[in-house]
Design a protein around this nucleic acid. Structure first.
Lengths: 306, 306
DNA sequence: TTGTAGGCGTTATCAC
DNA sequence: GTGATAACGCCTACAA
């Protein structure tokens, strides 16, 4: 709100002096920092890095900075990080999941910045939410196994966080729908997920439940490992054993044989979450507070019996 | 430096008022923020996320915060991000690679905070450096191919950044060492790396150079894709075609057949880089400014001809 | 050992 | 439309 003349005088002075605004002074005076805090449980899990990628891309070019907190799946760490972020008066907060501890939840409720929960759905978000139903997605994948003619599918899961438990619930839904007295074949662990672990769980499961003819995996790493283990045993993928993953990482369609998975829109979650924070910050309309991004079943050779 | 009595009075007041220090006020007054800036070219590349993991783990519990900049392999973005970070008067800066643009390099040289370059080696770092020689590592891997009896190895590479070019140079070194007139079989692209692309490059390479009997891949994603493509053609991995990756991601040893790769110490790079920043900040001895973490050749079934 | 004044570089408010 | 002047919350230095 200055005249043309002053504006040029100012820009000239800026250039001459090499003036660069000081973010901390700005934050102190305006009582608002340009930091968008992001809390995810793991920086190495591809699922979250895809989200991050979308997030960084949409924040790039704005005056905002992303600050990443790595909770390592530990509730107390999450709580500490929320406290740290909040002390910075962030422009917004993005947190993974809807299962915050009561203390964390309380902190978020009181925060006076826009908050987006991602990666899951709930009808009771702290503020805004962008995600999808893990239970529904898992149920659809499990029903696909029955539809393909498998009769004794099993579930293997690692790092059983709340979202994984919901996937197991979806699997269980499908089992019960197929046969109310159907057996729930499953093998889960709290160990961190890996391709190796997928192979191990597969081997152990086949000992526990020898009649298993298909497996639904918690995530794609496990599915890939399970497929390698099955191949090692000389099993025909698809025919002898059906395999289905979750998330549809890029490797699933490239694998030989290609592996069935449930695609989730991770990059889009990051983009939308960031966009909503920015919209709210600029007093624009952020749209519906709850966005369900759904999922997409990608049927491939690993669940093809023909 | 206060008496016991005052200390308790203060802590009591802190508890009563729920006092939390304001980082921006602190940064403004002390002319130093608690931010450690990190610049990496990709947040989705597993290679960098492993570094991040080590980094976050060692910074967790300190008063410092990691702020991540995603350069997307674009020099001008890197320069902008350096400028932004520097305006925050960071506690330290960690940047991937040694190939900064002259402008970026100049900014870093002038910065008055500790700086660590990672992921590569150089005898002329800006400040400190933790990395390894891509050229030597690639040469060792390529020599392994000859040692295993392969006679016509080829190189495939995607996203040919400076480090990838150095790997190609190492491959070339081995070719020349084996036969000064040896043919340099290679196929490279600037496209982002992926498992799919590994398969594509493999197929195209075999058309271009039909006598190829082994391939050395830029990275593990390509190697995995190449292996899938080879399997799709009915080739016997190891016997008909040797395959070697780079970085030794977890999937390499779990794959069937297991895939030879060169292990790099990414997590350790993150840890050491962070530790050095913290040491320097606390006026402790940070040790030798240059750390070479070397590499480890992991020979597996994919390069076993027997 | 304890208290206090000044200043860090903005923003916001208020006269002009 | 423009310029001056308090905060903002902490750190540093110095005085008590």
């Amino acid at each position: 709100m200055v005249s043309e003349g002053l504006r040029t005088r100012i820009t000239k002075a800026v250039a001459e002096l090499g003036y660069v605004p000081d973010p901390s002074a700005r934050a102190l005076a305006s009582r608002r920092s340009n930091v968008i805090g992001v809390l995810i449980p793991s920086v190495t899990n591809n699922v979250f890095t895809d989200v991050l990628s979308g997030l960084y891309d949409t924040v790039a070019g704005t005056p905002y900075n992303v600050q990443l907190g790595n909770t390592r799946y530990i509730a107390s760490v999450e709580e500490d990080l929320i406290r740290i972020f909040l002390s910075q008066r962030p422009a917004g907060l993005i947190v993974a999941g809807i299962d915050q501890s009561p203390a964390s939840r309380a902190l978020l409720e009181q925060a006076d910045c826009p908050i987006v929960q991602i990666m899951d759905v709930s009808n009771d978000p702290v503020d805004m939410l962008v995600g999808f139903s893990h239970r529904d997605a898992a149920r659809a994948a499990s029903e696909h196994l029955f539809a393909q003619g498998y009769r004794a599918p099993a579930f293997i899961g690692a790092r059983m966080d709340p979202r994984s438990e919901r996937r197991l619930a979806g699997f269980s839904d499908a089992i019960k729908a197929a046969d109310p007295n159907g057996k729930l074949r499953k093998l889960t662990t709290q160990e961190p997920s890996s391709v190796h672990l997928g192979g191990e769980l597969f081997d152990r499961l086949l000992t526990l439940e020898p009649d298993t003819d298909a497996i639904f995996c918690n995530n794609d790493d496990l599915a890939l490992g399970a497929q390698f283990a099955a191949q090692r045993r000389g099993l025909q993928i698809g025919k002898d054993i059906g395999i289905c993953g979750f998330n549809d990482l890029e490797v699933m369609s490239a694998a030989y044989p290609s592996i069935t998975s449930v695609r989730t829109f991770r990059r889009e979650m990051g983009e939308l979450a960031a966009r909503r924070i920015l919209a709210r910050t600029n007093d624009e309309d952020a749209g519906d507070p709850i966005v369900d991004l759904k999922w997409l079943l990608c049927a491939r050779d690993s669940t093809d019996r023909s």
